[in-house]
Simulated scan of single mutants.
Amino acid sequence: MTTQTFTWVPTVAGSSGDAMLLVRKAQFGDGYAQRAPDGLNNRSSSYNLTFIGDATKISAIMAFLDARAGGEAFYWTPLLRPQSLFTCEKYSEPTKDGNVYTMTAQFDQTFDTTSAT
């Protein structure tokens, strides 16, 4: 089975992301600190995304995420970044306003290629 790609586009409003840079730090007594990147993949990203659409669109997004059960990675392309592997362990149940549904999802970057089948 090949790794699937998440193709739905989140809304810009209500979406945000964070970059985490892992650093090893040695603090010395005179106030001096020495820092170095920790590991090959010391930068990872996490995104809180908002999706708005009709029942068909939101149902398809939930089905895609449910099929991966939080453990299987998928490809997704963040803004201004290259396509990468992500997992989604958490998303909100949709809310409805007329015929429009809204949901949020948290995408966490992963480097574990074994979860990408």
Rank of each mutant, 00 (worst) to 15 (best):
residue 90 K to A: 13
residue 114 T to F: 04
residue 109 Q to A: 12
residue 39 G to A: 07
residue 77 T to H: 01
residue 84 S to H: 05
residue 58 I to A: 03
residue 3 T to L: 04
residue 5 T to M: 09
residue 63 A to G: 05
residue 38 D to T: 01
residue 7 T to A: 12
residue 99 N to S: 12
residue 43 R to P: 03
residue 91 Y to K: 11
residue 105 A to L: 03
residue 83 Q to A: 15
residue 95 T to L: 02
residue 53 G to C: 04
residue 39 G to H: 02
residue 21 L to D: 06
residue 21 L to M: 10
residue 67 A to Y: 01
residue 92 S to R: 05
residue 87 T to M: 15
residue 27 Q to P: 01
residue 74 F to P: 08
residue 9 V to D: 09
residue 9 V to H: 06
residue 32 Y to N: 14
residue 105 A to K: 15
residue 49 L to D: 00
residue 61 I to Q: 10
residue 19 A to L: 10
residue 46 S to W: 06
residue 81 R to W: 08
residue 64 F to W: 01
residue 69 A to I: 06
residue 112 D to Q: 06
residue 89 E to G: 12
residue 22 L to Y: 08
residue 92 S to Q: 07
residue 50 T to H: 03
residue 41 N to E: 14
residue 28 F to Y: 15
residue 3 T to H: 06
residue 90 K to C: 00
residue 92 S to M: 06
residue 80 L to V: 13
residue 84 S to G: 10
residue 31 G to C: 06
residue 29 G to T: 09
residue 103 M to H: 00
residue 44 S to W: 07
residue 92 S to G: 05
residue 37 P to S: 13
residue 55 A to C: 10
residue 40 L to Q: 13
residue 13 A to D: 06
residue 9 V to N: 10
residue 17 G to T: 07
residue 13 A to N: 11
residue 85 L to R: 11
residue 66 D to Q: 08
residue 66 D to W: 00
residue 73 A to G: 08
residue 89 E to R: 15
residue 18 D to E: 11
residue 84 S to Y: 09
residue 70 G to P: 12
residue 50 T to V: 13
residue 62 M to S: 03
residue 50 T to D: 00
residue 69 A to P: 00
residue 54 D to H: 04
residue 8 W to V: 12
residue 73 A to V: 10
residue 37 P to G: 04
residue 6 F to N: 00
residue 111 F to C: 05
residue 95 T to M: 01
residue 23 V to N: 07
residue 114 T to R: 13
residue 111 F to K: 04
residue 98 G to D: 07
residue 36 A to I: 13
residue 10 P to S: 05
residue 69 A to N: 12
residue 57 K to Q: 04
residue 103 M to Q: 03
residue 66 D to S: 05
residue 81 R to S: 07
residue 26 A to M: 14
residue 103 M to D: 00
residue 92 S to C: 10
residue 27 Q to D: 15
residue 68 R to Y: 01
residue 68 R to I: 02
residue 30 D to A: 06
residue 25 K to F: 04
residue 24 R to C: 04
residue 81 R to C: 08
residue 83 Q to S: 10
residue 73 A to K: 08
residue 103 M to I: 15
residue 33 A to F: 10
residue 110 T to R: 09
residue 14 G to E: 03
residue 88 C to Q: 12
residue 23 V to R: 05
residue 63 A to H: 04
residue 8 W to Y: 01
residue 57 K to W: 03
residue 90 K to W: 02
residue 49 L to S: 08
residue 106 Q to Y: 00
residue 83 Q to N: 07
residue 64 F to D: 01
residue 111 F to E: 02
residue 116 A to I: 11
residue 69 A to R: 15
residue 3 T to W: 02
residue 111 F to G: 12
residue 39 G to P: 12
residue 50 T to K: 07
residue 39 G to N: 07
residue 37 P to A: 09
residue 13 A to R: 13
residue 21 L to N: 04
residue 22 L to K: 10
residue 103 M to G: 01
residue 99 N to I: 06
residue 87 T to A: 06
residue 103 M to S: 02
residue 81 R to Y: 10
residue 84 S to Q: 13
residue 49 L to K: 12
residue 47 Y to M: 15
residue 107 F to I: 13
residue 73 A to L: 02
residue 23 V to F: 03
residue 66 D to H: 03
residue 28 F to R: 13
residue 110 T to C: 03
residue 79 L to H: 05
residue 115 S to K: 05
residue 113 T to L: 14
residue 54 D to M: 11
